[in-house]
C-alpha cells in the first residue's frame, strides 16, 4: 500500500498551480488528501503529478452574505462546525451546511478534508455533494482561460466524476441562502458512527404566507449515481404543517429514487430508508420553517 511514483508541486499562487496543471499531463489537485491519498496508497489512482494547493493564498475563507455562503477551497470541514464567527454566520444563512457537515466522517478527517474537495471528488455518498444540489449551489472554477461558475447540475457527471476537464482548480463552492419561510433538516443512517451513510436525506420545506406547505425538496446520499433533487411538494402541497402527511411524502420519495445495492445494504433497504428519513426530516424541517415564519 505505497503509492506509485509521482511528482509533487506545491505552488504558491493559483496561476502557478494552473501552470503546473497545464504543463504536466495527468496532474491532479491535492487538497485535504482524505480521499485522494487512500486512492494513491491502494494504487487505484496513479497521477503523474500532485499539485498541492495548500500553500495557495486566499482560498481559506468562508464568506457569508444575504445571498448565501461561499466556501473557499481550503476551508476544512471543521471550519463550518467550529465555534467561530464565520461558522455561526454561515449556519444562520444556510443551516443545512453545518448540519450535514457534522455527519462527515470523524474529527481527524474533518480537520483535514475540505468541503470543496468533497464536491470535486463527486462522491454520491458524500454529504456535501447532496447539500450543493439541494441548495441549488455552484462552484467557481479557475482555468488558464479564466474563472467560470458551474452549477451543480452541470458539475456532477457520474460517481467520482465531474465535468471538469483539463487544468482546473475549484476555488470555491457557493451555497445559496435558505429561502424565507423555509426550514431544513438533515439525517442519515450509517453502519457505524461517522461512516459514509447507508442512506442520508437532506430536505428543505418552504411555507407560503398562510403557513401552508408550498414547496418540499429532498436530496439523498448513497442513492443513485449522482446527487439529485427530488420535488416532493405534490404529496403535501397546501397542507398546514401539523396536518401534513409526511409519510405520504416519504412514500412518494420511495417511488422517485433508484438506489443500488451493495454489501452493506440492499437496494430495497435503501428505498425503505429513503421513505423513513424523508418522513422524519420533513417533520423537523417543517417545524423549523414554521418557527422562521413566525419570527
Amino acid at each position: 500500500m505505497k503509492p506509485a511514483p509521482f511528482r509533487y508541486a506545491d505552488p504558491r499562487s493559483l496561476e502557478e498551480a494552473l501552470d503546473v496543471l497545464t504543463a504536466e499531463h495527468g496532474a491532479k489537485v491535492l487538497a485535504g488528501g482524505q480521499s485522494l491519498i487512500p486512492l494513491l496508497a491502494m494504487r487505484l489512482a496513479a497521477p503523474a503529478t500532485l499539485v498541492d494547493i495548500n500553500r495557495v493564498p486566499g482560498l481559506d475563507t468562508v464568506e457569508t452574505t444575504g445571498d448565501g455562503v461561499r466556501v473557499g477551497a481550503l476551508v476544512r470541514h471543521d471550519g463550518l462546525l467550529r465555534d467561530s464567527p464565520d461558522a455561526t454566520a454561515a449556519a444562520r444563512v444556510q443551516p443545512l451546511l453545518a448540519r450535514a457537515t457534522a455527519n462527515v466522517a470523524h474529527p481527524a478527517i474533518r480537520n483535514r478534508g475540505t468541503t470543496v474537495g468533497s464536491i470535486a471528488h463527486a462522491d454520491p455518498s458524500g454529504e456535501m455533494t447532496a447539500v450543493l444540489a439541494l441548495t441549488g449551489g455552484s462552484v467557481t472554477v479557475a482555468t488558464p482561460e479564466g474563472r467560470s461558475t458551474v452549477g451543480w447540475q452541470d458539475l456532477f457527471v457520474g460517481p467520482l466524476e465531474t465535468s471538469l476537464a483539463g487544468p482546473a482548480v475549484v476555488v470555491d463552492a457557493f451555497f445559496p441562502a435558505l429561502p424565507a419561510r423555509s426550514g431544513t433538516a438533515f439525517a442519515e443512517i450509517s453502519r457505524r458512527k461517522g461512516d459514509y451513510a447507508v442512506c442520508g436525506a437532506g430536505v428543505v420545506v418552504t411555507l407560503d404566507e398562510d403557513r401552508r406547505v408550498a414547496a418540499v425538496r429532498a436530496s439523498y446520499l448513497s442513492v443513485g449515481l449522482v446527487p439529485e433533487v427530488h420535488d416532493l411538494t405534490e404529496a403535501v402541497a397546501g397542507k398546514p404543517v401539523d396536518g401534513a402527511d409526511w409519510a405520504a411524502a416519504g412514500a412518494l420519495a420511495r417511488t422517485l429514487v433508484d438506489p443500488d445495492g451493495d454489501i452493506h445494504a440492499s437496494a430495497d433497504y435503501r428505498r425503505l430508508l429513503v421513505g423513513v428519513l424523508t418522513e422524519r426530516t420533513l417533520a423537523e424541517a417543517a417545524a423549523e420553517a414554521l418557527e422562521r415564519t413566525a419570527a
Binding site: I189, R191, V198, H264, A265, S266, Y269, L272
Partner: peptide
C-alpha cells in the same frame, strides 16, 4: 445480522 438483513 445487519439492519438490511433484518429487514429482509
Amino acid at each position: 445480522i445487519s439492519p438490511t438483513e433484518l429487514y429482509d
